[in-house]
Design a protein around this nucleic acid. Sequence first.
DNA 1: GTCGGGAGTCGAATCGATTCGACCACTCGA
DNA 2: TCGAGTGGTCGAATCGATTCGACTCCCGAC
Lengths: 337, 337
Amino acid sequence: MNIGEIARRAGVSRSTVSYALTGRRPVSAETRQRIQAVIDELGYRPNAAARALKEGRTRTLGLVIPPASARLTDMQLGFVASVVEAAAQADLDVLLSPSGGDHDRSFERLISGNRVDGVILMEIRLEDERVTRLHREGLPFVTIGHTAHPHGTCWVDVDYGTLVARCVHHLADLGHRGIALLNRSTELIAAGYGPAHRAQAAFAEAIHQRGLTGVDLPCADDPAAGEEWFEQLRDRHPGVTAITTINEAALPGLQRGIERLDVAVPREMSIAGVAARHWAEGFRPQLTAADVPTLEMGAHAVALLLERIATPTAPPRHLLLTPPISLRDSTGPARTT
Amino acid sequence: MNIGEIARRAGVSRSTVSYALTGRRPVSAETRQRIQAVIDELGYRPNAAARALKEGRTRTLGLVIPPASARLTDMQLGFVASVVEAAAQADLDVLLSPSGGDHDRSFERLISGNRVDGVILMEIRLEDERVTRLHREGLPFVTIGHTAHPHGTCWVDVDYGTLVARCVHHLADLGHRGIALLNRSTELIAAGYGPAHRAQAAFAEAIHQRGLTGVDLPCADDPAAGEEWFEQLRDRHPGVTAITTINEAALPGLQRGIERLDVAVPREMSIAGVAARHWAEGFRPQLTAADVPTLEMGAHAVALLLERIATPTAPPRHLLLTPPISLRDSTGPARTT
DNA sequence: GTCGGGAGTCGAATCGATTCGACCACTCGA
DNA sequence: TCGAGTGGTCGAATCGATTCGACTCCCGAC
């Protein structure tokens, strides 16, 4: 059931069927109805490959996700879901590529051979070979997160630096003098993962500004590590009375550690950080945190990419979001010793 | 940079380039090298649409995921990741469609217009319109989970019925007389979600066989609901000394509830269930549970689908997995009152 | 009465690959 | 020595859509 078959049955030429479908030239109401009837009867849908070949675009976006070996965090999952959803709303399909680096077969397939009209990249590092590769290839793309050289590319990101600084100031205002940063894993930091580095820098700066004592400790992205992290913190840094966290995945473990060592939150330990609302509200007591708007970010990324595809020569646009910090129940005045 | 350009620069015809690439006819070593050199220099990759059009297949699989509105559970995420990974290993791409039901635009696009060679479906209900739709369409497909009429289709599933029964027997062997089933949400049960129904039936049967008292309570798929579920259980069914769970997402809440009410596990309450290893090991104390092998299941689904695509007429194959129950620390002898 | 123009339609070219039939130049066996 | 077979290559057809140029009506304006 190709367009020729429809044309034959409707007694018109193939081009007329095409014009009836796309509306790019006038077709009489009568003919259009006859064609539509045949189409409905046969359940015809134009062949995607043929259309893509002729039009030179595929109506498909590529989404590069971290490989399955690395467990996706809840936030990454949120991005994937929201990107797919936003694309579906715009009648676009999404092709997935699980690839960590450049010169990965799946990544190569995605970006060459005109398989997609544009690409969305996540888990961006400060120096990211995939970004330079896409630049070379000339394929429109948008990143969720940004590199150390942000001006040449389109991206959407959360301003981790500012958010961490705000958390520190909030805690300092409450009288806390010793604050720890629950950072992401050492591997990610070593790999040059942006948010971890920006959080680190902003933390150090804010601590210095307020004349506080800061403890910057990385932590693997899983519950068990979170528990251990807290034990070590209590053990080695007894002066710390507040925590700033950007490590969502460690939260359940942090909670377990707190309960096991029987530490009262916020009376003995205040916590403020950055997390998806889902996690912040799941914490006991509910976490004072900046809620990362994953849904909006995915939608923005798709919107930016569509703009870029439409006008590839326009100057690249960025979106640096600084969601407000929702005051919940995990922060309170410092214990006066 | 299409095949014609390569041919021109290498001084051969287009067909020779094609044969050099696919190896479907002999090409002299010398010619092949000359062609390869040009290809490497220009970074040529065959146009996917043109190839798909001519070959009649796209080397792309479709994966239907629940819409973003419903938060993906960890297990579903595991399936997505493993399917994408397995497909990448076989040099196949994966097209995502977030759609709950039939006659969803994204679903329609996926299955018509020859966009994909086959489809993998998840979140299968006992009666699933998408399955009948795919049957009608004649597109090869595999489901993760199975309907009430499993014989006509290919699928991979975990035998929730047997696993729940085994949990009950295990708990009964330990002397427990009152056992609760922590089931999935009422919405899923109402929608005819298979695992929930099969668990229910097997639970009732095993309880009856052993002459026990069973409490079958649904629970929304989130931590908060899990916490509430446990409170209600303690409140209304004080005779229950053991829990069988198939609701992964409720586990963190269950844990919080247990800790808040200060219930000792397994001394006062034993727990056994079905969960991804990740969740079972994250529970405190570690959960006695059948580990759902999400990675293997995704890989199996892809393998079955490839078989089906290769020989669509072969009788459909199924795979019903019954992973062993890993004895961990959450089950113990019933308290003798 | 005719001329311009738009509505409506058709045929043919095109996108970039694969593939079939044909052809040439060799080699090997009878 | 001749024919069969084969390695190596080419040209043309093909997949299923879109799109351009051209053609036919028909209507209204001059």
